[in-house]
Simulated assay, not measured.
Amino acid sequence: MNTRAIDMADAVVRRYKTRDPEEIISRRAIKLKDIRYCHDLLGYYTVILNCEYIGINTNCTNAQRVSAMAHELGHALFDRKHASSGQAFQDTYFYSLDNSKAERRANTFAAELLLADDAVLEPIGYYEYTADLKQLEANLPSRCASAYRAMKYQELLQEFQYAHSGLITLDEIARMNSIEKHFVDFKLNILADKGYQLPFLPELHNDFLKDSLKNCNGNEVTMD
């Protein structure tokens, strides 16, 4: 987990008292530009003559726009020196999280910026699950084998998932927050790394954004 990116996102929220990346971009005097004639590019970040620019494709949906701005804002906060050297962030290998430390960091920053912990914990039933865990632990024998304890935890998890199969989906959480679904998945992994015992944890694939970053014409576009 990139703790610097998480700490930076939390600091930005405290400073600007908002999770809206467009407002933060404006208040940081970063120039926001439209991308109109490049269908395979969702967004970019660059620095020209000491002026910062973020470009967003005009064809993207509102959720894509918000998610892209948050991602590019992450580059602005961490990668200005690199961008100042004349290298715009347009990495063609963005879809693989293994390829670039800068991209992984920007994704972590964006997920933490866009979603407060409770924006995900409450809808997935985390607090109800935690209460059930506490009750289980209170009823376990004081000296029981670790294998038995692990078995009871697994049974509780399965029972909770079965009983709460109708809980809100990641798609619904994303729609409620007007962001891309995969940043909800990414946030779940961040929460798990923070130490939360979650009732479920989707697997974060390396190409977790590949299926969603498409413009309105159906062409795949990159985040950078």
Rank of each mutant, 00 (worst) to 15 (best):
G74I: 08
G74C: 09
H75S: 07
L77C: 06
L77S: 07
F78C: 05
D79L: 00
D79K: 00
K81V: 13
K81L: 13
H82Q: 10
H82W: 09
S84Y: 11
S84Q: 15
S85G: 08
Q87G: 00
Q87D: 02
A88S: 09
A88L: 05
T92V: 02
T92N: 04
Y93D: 08
F94C: 07
Y95E: 04
Y95W: 05
D98W: 12
N99L: 01
A102R: 05
E103D: 08
E103G: 04
A106V: 09
T108C: 05
A111Y: 04
A111M: 02
E112D: 06
E112T: 05
L113Y: 07
L115K: 01
L115I: 01
A116H: 08
A116R: 09
D117P: 11
D117Q: 12
V120A: 05
V120Q: 03
V120R: 06
L121A: 02
E122C: 03
P123F: 06
P123E: 01
I124Q: 07
Y127Q: 03
E128V: 00
Y129L: 06
Y129P: 11
T130K: 03
A131I: 02
A131M: 08
L133E: 07
L140H: 04
P141T: 13
S142Y: 08
R143W: 08
C144L: 09
C144F: 02
A145K: 15
S146W: 02
S146L: 09
S146E: 04
S146P: 01
A147R: 14
A150V: 10
A150M: 13
M151E: 05
Y153I: 15
L157R: 04
L157D: 00
E159K: 13
F160L: 02
F160W: 01
F160P: 01
Q161G: 11
Q161P: 09
Q161L: 14
Y162Q: 15
A163G: 11
A163V: 11
G166F: 08
L167Y: 11
L167M: 10
L170S: 06
D171E: 13
D171W: 10
E172L: 12
I173H: 14
I173M: 15
R175M: 11
R175K: 14
R175T: 06
M176Y: 09
I179M: 01
I179G: 04
K181A: 14
V184Q: 10
V184G: 10
F186L: 08
F186P: 00
K187R: 11
I190N: 13
L191Y: 11
D193V: 13
D193T: 15
G195D: 06
Q197N: 13
L198A: 05
P199K: 08
H205L: 14
N206I: 14
D207R: 13
D211T: 14
S212A: 04
S212E: 13
